[in-house]
Design a protein around this nucleic acid. Sequence first.
DNA 1: TATGTAACTCTCACTACTGAGATACTAATG
DNA 2: CATTAGTATCTCAGTAGTGAGAGTTACATA
Lengths: 182, 182
Amino acid sequence: MNSPKRATSKEHGPVKGGAAVTADLPTATALKLWVVLARSHDAIVEVLKADIDRHDLTIAEFAVMEALYHKGPQLLGEIQKRILVSSGGMTFLVDRLAKRGLAERQNCQSDRRARYAALTKKGDKLMQSIFPEHAAVIHKAMKGLKQSEQRELTALLKTLGKEAGRLAAETPACKAAMAEQE
Amino acid sequence: MNSPKRATSKEHGPVKGGAAVTADLPTATALKLWVVLARSHDAIVEVLKADIDRHDLTIAEFAVMEALYHKGPQLLGEIQKRILVSSGGMTFLVDRLAKRGLAERQNCQSDRRARYAALTKKGDKLMQSIFPEHAAVIHKAMKGLKQSEQRELTALLKTLGKEAGRLAAETPACKAAMAEQE
DNA sequence: TATGTAACTCTCACTACTGAGATACTAATG
DNA sequence: CATTAGTATCTCAGTAGTGAGAGTTACATA
């Protein structure tokens, strides 16, 4: 599973031994949305994890391979930003894939600090055999919604994510940046 | 951050050094939805993590406290199901909260296997001071959408999550259950 | 009552990841 | 050039969390 998710429900007022919680309506709406979003996300992750597990890959490993498969060789840093792991994690992931012969590092001539990661033939073959299946699993996991609904959902989430992303980018970096400036 | 997330985009056909990928339209729609869902989820998690961090709590710890705060004392197993951690993780989390004096264990008279977890006074006070702020952060993270849109989104996600949850419950448990039956 | 099965928590070895630095290089500026 | 800042990866110690299994206790049924 993924990150532990909140347990909040609309039960307000004193519960046996619990606390009274009062929130205004917009906040309550947002909280509810978050609970539902987190839960559906986790449910899907679980389905995907079960699928990926069958090929002895972690979700992170699969994410790296997927990035390489779809976008071709990339700098480690690029992949890192895409799949959201730490720098240490990125190195570790490529190491592991390399050890299994699924990916390899390539030096960058124009910048000798940088290294590309790329799929090996074996890795590419694996993805070719795995990915369509994986896509089918996602398709199946989404089949609770009609296509039109899926598109609507996508649009809403995109808007939501854009704002949240802006907020996220602001918060921790700002903290560091502000501290630097002293 | 949470679980590493996919990098798929709609770029199909051969990319520099990459592979050709062809998916039928419904699958492409589902894939896209998943990418967007995962990204917005992660963005929000990042925002929340930054908030929770300020109180020296992990997301998992906060989730436990939140469950106790809103629903009162509960069996460890109940919390576990709610916040989706392993049994070992559950024990560990309560240990840690107990060590900090924020939560405590209580024996259950009717079932001596079971133990309740409950917030201490200190833990309850902490939640009282933290939670409204936390709710405000969520509210802020969601402010890219109007309330009506948020409700719409909630409804769609609920449908999606229900189906995905059914699928998730089926997959890994079934595997184990089937194996048992031999 | 005996007995098998299920339900709870806890233990422990293990793993995937993080985050702070180290190292190596590039680039901009005086 | 020399210096300083910035960027890219890698190292490594530390940590949160997993999952299989042990130890208890409850419960249903013969």
